[in-house]
Nucleic acid binder design. Structure first.
Lengths: 145, 145
DNA sequence: ATTCTTGCAAAGCATTTGCACCCTG
DNA sequence: CAGGGTGCAAATGCTTTGCAAGAAT
């Protein structure tokens, strides 16, 4: 998967953050590694293109991006933190076989949920978003794909 | 909330685990602290009743319970691990204001989701469970309750 | 020029581990 | 009494922090 650096620079600038090689590298890594990478995976990826970037900088950059809504953290069962560059609303498929997390997009489902909770409001709360965590098993014995 | 020790002992025995004061204490803590406690909260609770229990033992016991399905881990955004003693299927309300996680049970919703995914199967996967992560804001300025 | 960002290395903290001893079944 | 469970303390590993030096606007 190829990633457009120009586009990355714009995303950073849009949030009034300074555009630095480190930030470009981190965001490029998150997009390229698209499968909910850990900080460690991001650091490994970056070390090819920008060999001298500091680990602390990667952590700080990831925090900044999450804070400014450039990326999100993924919900996990207390393992290492994983990040997600896909901002469009989506759900997650947790593959029990190989521990992978895949995105699942379904607008019809979102529409149905929206309607449901309009009719069945939760007392005292206003809903800001609903994300499904769908645990699945592969039907093929092939644990990848 | 009062918790029945007899019942706790049975739950442990059912899994062919040895019933020890440490295990009883840990499970008692998870049930009493019912609000998705961290290991630290569990340790604090236990230290009243069983002052000399080791921290490492609590971690080992929690791992064992998760492994044998006595309790579950809760999905979080990479913070400390939280545990959940409620085994009945339920969803989670993430209160953005105070970072609390509450249970949300709605069988009609579950029924609707089941029907939806019967009609809209996910290619190559079999669904084992669906949990909603509902981000909410309190409507009262009162951030508790 | 000013403010924000980076690099580095040390510190922090939750969790894990190894092993001798102990207790449950 | 046999096998698993516990306590302890050290070790691990992810992540954060503080600050001087550097870079972006």
């Amino acid at each position: 998967m190829h990633v457009d650096i120009k586009h990355i620079q714009e995303l950073i600038k849009e949030k009034d953050l300074k555009v630095t090689p480190q930030r470009i590298g981190v965001l490029e890594a998150v997009y390229t590694l698209h499968n909910h990478p850990t900080a460690e995976q991001i650091i490994d990826f970056i070390h090819n293109k920008y060999p001298s970037i500091a680990i602390g900088t990667v952590y700080k950059t990831l925090d900044t991006f999450v804070k400014y809504g450039v990326i999100n953290k993924v919900l996990t069962e207390g393992e290492v933190t994983r990040y997600d560059g896909v901002l469009k609303h989506h759900h997650h498929l947790y593959n029990e076989g190989n521990n992978e997390i895949k995105d699942y997009v379904n607008e019809e489902l979102d529409e149905m949920l929206k309607t449901f909770f309009e009719k069945n409001a939760i007392e005292d709360y206003q809903i800001s978003s609903i994300t499904l965590h769908i645990s699945v098993k592969s039907l093929n014995n092939n644990s990848n794909k």
